[in-house]
Nucleic acid binder design. Structure first.
Lengths: 226, 226
DNA sequence: GAATCCTGGATTGTTGACAATAATCTGTAT
DNA sequence: ATACAGATTATTGTCAACAATCCAGGATTC
């Protein structure tokens, strides 16, 4: 989503966003070697800002760059996706704990509202996993920012989520367990509302662990080789 | 330190390393507004590669950049430093657990060797906190890579450690408890050698938590306002 | 006297051209 | 036919000039 508030938006920022979403949405396949001029033509940019964006993307681990040999989108194995979930488990556990300690009452009210809107969304479009994924993203986003831990939020929102979402798009019905996830979310929010950081951390870790196992099972069953 | 192995070393990489070490060592004070041309003169670079490096540094959170308004080194409060340690606590706990599960026997032997060299270093240069800091860095570095979790190692080594070291240089006698830390290290290594992931995670978390409390105390006592 | 608007200067963002490097293709020899 | 070596080509890395934007100082107005 392009921001509206930030007018001073350089071409490099634009390039960064374009490339990031393109990678996440799968428009640029992993392993695909892409030339700079080709990208320039595709996104109406010049090579200066593009290279700057490329550097940022490389620093974030979304693509790899060998000197004089071009750029290619990073291709991640199933094992590496599982590792990402293990990182999420501990980091979001921390986020939940700190959110329980620090969120304002207004923010907690917002969490409840998010929960309700997810419920109606799930009822309306039954089984539509996409909305669930979006709602899930929203939920975790709020908790990350609610932790009041700048760096933690930055790492979660800026690094991990993009990599995870990159795979969500591919195996689209990733979570595929809307009701169960919603229940888990509700319990986490209740723990936060009661300011029980320890419990919130525990529940969040279990929630993400369950999601990881679910994906692992789906991949093994369906033979979905990413 | 410039790498010797990697000959294909672009100017942008060079600029990135130079700036990173300059920030970490404190040659560029936090909050200081720095101009591009000034940096170019300082590091014998042109603005192209420099800007690319600047983008990377910004993406890693070591400096902030307002469009058309210049670059300044990020200045972090005491609270934010504490937050960094909280993140380290959970991430390095995970790293220790996975290292216990996955490190090869040779790597574990290397850990023991590191431990021994630290011991002699501490004995030789008693109280010299600098060596301790270096050894500490080495220890945590080995465990991060030993976790075989690519992204985890990347986040720890590429992001967090640089920010933490940035403050180590400032309040130089950061840990200042060589012997105690060494004992904690030894216990962690033993847990890893016994392939006891749970214990290794617990000990590592406690170790980092102790370091955090130590720094917090030092800051409050000495009135070291970073 | 204080605040606001405007203009000059400096700095950043962007562009296009140039140089250096790696991949590819072709030709020859085994 | 295959493997190796050389040259070509295309792509990346780098540079210097141009345009757009913000900051500071001064003048003006309330």
């Amino acid at each position: 989503m392009p921001e509206v508030i930030s007018q001073p938006y350089t071409r490099a920022d634009e390039a960064f966003d374009c490339l990031q979403t393109a990678i996440v949405k799968g428009d640029l396949s992993p392993g695909e070697k892409i030339g700079e001029v080709e990208l320039c033509a595709r996104f109406n940019l010049t090579r200066g800002p593009l290279r700057e964006a490329l550097g940022r993307l490389e620093s974030r681990g979304l693509l790899v760059r060998r000197p004089h040999a071009g750029v290619k989108v990073v291709s991640v194995s199933t094992e590496e996706l599982m590792e990402l979930y293990r990182i999420r488990e501990v980091m979001e556990g921390l986020a939940a704990r700190q959110a329980a300690e620090r969120m304002t009452d207004a923010e907690i009210a917002g969490l409840y509202a998010t929960l309700d809107s997810h419920e109606t969304m799930i009822e309306q479009a039954q089984g539509q996993a996409y909305y669930q994924a979006e709602g899930d993203y929203d939920f975790h986003h709020r908790i990350a920012t609610g932790s009041r831990n700048t760096k933690l939020a930055q790492m979660l929102l800026g690094d991990l989520y993009y990599m995870v979402r990159m795979y969500r798009y591919r195996l689209s019905t990733a979570s595929g367990r809307p009701h169960m996830a919603l229940g888990e979310h509700r319990r986490i929010v209740e723990a936060i509302a009661q300011r029980d950081g320890e419990l919130a951390e525990f529940l969040m870790k279990r929630h993400i662990n369950a999601a990881r196992q679910n994906i692992e099972r789906k991949i093994q069953e369906g033979g979905l080789t990413i």
